[in-house]
Amino acid sequence: MTRIIAPVAALVAALFIGGLLWVTQGGEDSAFAQCSATKIAGEGGQIGGPFELLNADGQTVTDADVITEPTLVYFGYTFCPDVCPLDTARNAEAVDVLAQRGMSVTPVFISVDPGRDTPEVVGDFAFNLHEKMVGLTGSPEQVDAASKAYRTYYNVHDTSDEFYLVDHSTFTYLMMPEIGFVEFFRRDVTADAMAERVGCFVENA
């Protein structure tokens, strides 16, 4: 199979999320106006929300358990051949840059492949990327509910093939405790640029 997952996923995600997000430069009338490089069409509360998933120990956790400090949330899967390792490594690097500046941020990886991504598999994947990264999975119903809450897209290919792929959107979301969604990051944002923007949100929260 030709691997065109990233471009296809990006296009589908853009169409799927279209009407909720669009890129612009600043201008939002809020406490974070100077921090944001994106603008939300409608209420920011449309992105994110309650979820119940399983952590690396197989324990049920909620969004309130996970988002206890500024948090970078990414949806992907551990068998992903290309974009997920790069995106999550970028997120982990941004967390380290922020730590050097005295800011604590949690990276979160939510699997959209519950058929293969058991709690143990997701936990190992996350920990190997960053000691702070939280890996989450769940039942198909739990994963679907979390994906819908964050307005993400994913499509699992024919699971009769053990090497099946999953198309998915590739945004990273910045969530703040008691505030919720404040910003999203595309794949082309570097770790340093992400850290700079996240740091602005943290300082102005």
Rank of each mutant, 00 (worst) to 15 (best):
T152A: 11
T137G: 11
R187Y: 08
H157D: 14
E183G: 07
I179W: 06
V182P: 02
E183L: 09
A146Y: 08
G180Q: 09
V143E: 06
S139L: 04
T170M: 13
H130L: 10
K132D: 13
V156Q: 07
A191T: 00
D167K: 04
T137H: 03
V134G: 07
A191L: 01
F171P: 00
S147F: 04
H157G: 09
G135I: 00
T159D: 10
A193I: 10
D144F: 01
Y154Q: 11
E141L: 03
V134M: 01
D192A: 11
A149G: 06
D158H: 12
P177N: 08
K132M: 03
M175K: 00
R187F: 07
F163K: 15
A191Y: 01
Y154W: 04
E183Y: 13
N128V: 05
S147R: 10
M175P: 02
A149M: 12
V134E: 04
D188Y: 00
E178K: 13
D158Q: 11
F181H: 11
Y150S: 02
M133I: 07
S160K: 05
M176I: 10
A149L: 10
Y153P: 08
S169F: 12
T170I: 15
L165A: 12
G138N: 00
E141G: 00
F184S: 07
V182W: 12
Y164R: 06
